[in-house]
Design a protein around this nucleic acid. Sequence first.
DNA 1: CTGAAAGCGCTAACAA
DNA 2: TTGTTAGCGCTTTCAG
Lengths: 347, 347
Amino acid sequence: MPVPQPPVPPEPRRPLTLRDVSEASGVSEMTVSRVLRNRGDVSVATREKVLAAAKGLGYVPNKIAGALASQRVNLVAVVIPSLGNLVFPEVLAGVSETLEDTGLQPVFGVTNYSPDREEAVLYEMLSWRPSGVIVAGLEHSDAASAMLRNAGIPIVEIMDVDGEPIDSVVGISHMRAGREMARAIVAAGYRRIGFLGTKMPLDHRARKRMEGFEAGLAEAGLALADREFYSGGSALAKGREMTQAMLARSPDLDFLYYSNDMIGAGGLLWCLGQGLDVPGKIGLAGFNGVDLLDGLPVRLATMDACRREIGQQAAKIVAGQSGSGLIGGERIELTPRLQPGDTIRKA
Amino acid sequence: MPVPQPPVPPEPRRPLTLRDVSEASGVSEMTVSRVLRNRGDVSVATREKVLAAAKGLGYVPNKIAGALASQRVNLVAVVIPSLGNLVFPEVLAGVSETLEDTGLQPVFGVTNYSPDREEAVLYEMLSWRPSGVIVAGLEHSDAASAMLRNAGIPIVEIMDVDGEPIDSVVGISHMRAGREMARAIVAAGYRRIGFLGTKMPLDHRARKRMEGFEAGLAEAGLALADREFYSGGSALAKGREMTQAMLARSPDLDFLYYSNDMIGAGGLLWCLGQGLDVPGKIGLAGFNGVDLLDGLPVRLATMDACRREIGQQAAKIVAGQSGSGLIGGERIELTPRLQPGDTIRKA
DNA sequence: CTGAAAGCGCTAACAA
DNA sequence: TTGTTAGCGCTTTCAG
């Protein structure tokens, strides 16, 4: 009489290894490995046996072991200051999209505009020995710069080209963007100009834009008539508040330059709500060209920061697909286009 | 006479290993390892020698080797459908923030709402043997579900609680959110109601919201009077267009429910531009509670989706800090609050 | 407190 | 076409 067997206790779930697939399929580990990576010639029969066994077991390869053995890692570190900014998610989308068919995988890290956090994040990421690094900005702590220089992999600094890159760089000149906006404003006949921006000493790009802007005004013998900075809160709401405050303080201003489109849009809505004559009595401009705002009743003048394309180009360089023939040290300066919208007087 | 030596040729840059630090400091690899990980007792003298050598050389540990040896990986996989949505960056921010002091590192992957891409991304991520997975939604391909179930690590499905979780779940009931919005609208006296949303069959949460909404209307014997879906483009602009189109087609509508705040804001701006009486003649509501819109002249009624908190709670579960004492299988349902704003009539 | 030995799971290189 | 051997750079374990 058959003794009833207790059900086989489920084994403590140890992750499956190549060896398990090897045993299940009766094929050597090495050949299993070859099948799973599509490397080398394997007979169709063997291949199918292996594939069936792997799928049946639910095997997921261990890339940690693979990377250690092959000294190859399909990860690309992407380090950005913030996710709240709307700008960076777009860059990430460009990177993500371009990397999709390369076998490379982006890994994101966020620094909150803190050089210390940037250093920590880079250290952490480099310790995974990625195939490349894409990092926002040209300003890094000494230690971070040293790490990047010594990493021995492609480094692409993005967003900004005003400075000394470590290796490759893809971005726009914020200095120039600011200057050109100033020229356009001056050319349109505005003279009493205010600046509204974020209070972020560590946002070097915003700073460079403002410097370029002031330089552009200076060419025409002008200087900023007023300025105001904010931090935190909803950008749209801040734009309203700051605009109101500035115009209360300096009612004779005839132009407001905002360091980003969101506060610009807030300011624009406020001006419209007040019934101010835009762009006749007062002109407005922002920066970034976020298409998020396309549906506003009046289009804010802005300058496209080429965010998505920056992500794409950077990804291409890391993937070795830039087509330049260069091996590192590339420099791609994109040109932001002025989008005059409806908030600058026509010349 | 000293023969002039040629300068030492710079060695081909091989990544530094523990062995290099060991040799430079005259301490065994094992002890160097202990110092670098703050494990076990090491004399102060030895520690300092090692630290000095490591810093001097610019040593960056190899986590791949470390992870293989220790069978521990400090990575948490975070898989989301999109970065363009504004919602997900906020969730990421919550995750990122909470993980900051745990020694865990988020790694993000994007699926573009495609189940196939989700499966591929999960496979890729699981092959790095992360400590946990945070994934948006409860709907996955069979293969993806199987992978997650077999991974043997904490899995947290987020955003949505309407369904069968694999392990833990943190989110809101979109079904309920839709129903409650419907009830609020009906209670405020609106009767001819239109729905405007994204044409995304794979956005299950938007679908559930609409289903809940219709169920809520049905309780009052009502049905949607009109509906329209869009895809692509700037949400704000789409909101304007769709609103105009819908009101042209169904001029007798007295309420518009939008599947997200951005198109809702577009619609609101259009209505205001037309001089329509909001919320008297027509009411409006969106979904998400994005504070981005705080600066609009009129506050759109909406419902907070608790995005940041979802990220935080999910991260806590993965980090084993949820405080529930549970080991897996947690269920956290957050309650979205109705924010009536200025676009629903007061009762 | 410090060191030596033995792998982690996989792949490069070579052999059959 | 397939299998064998020897590590990848680190940590675990155990012995001084």
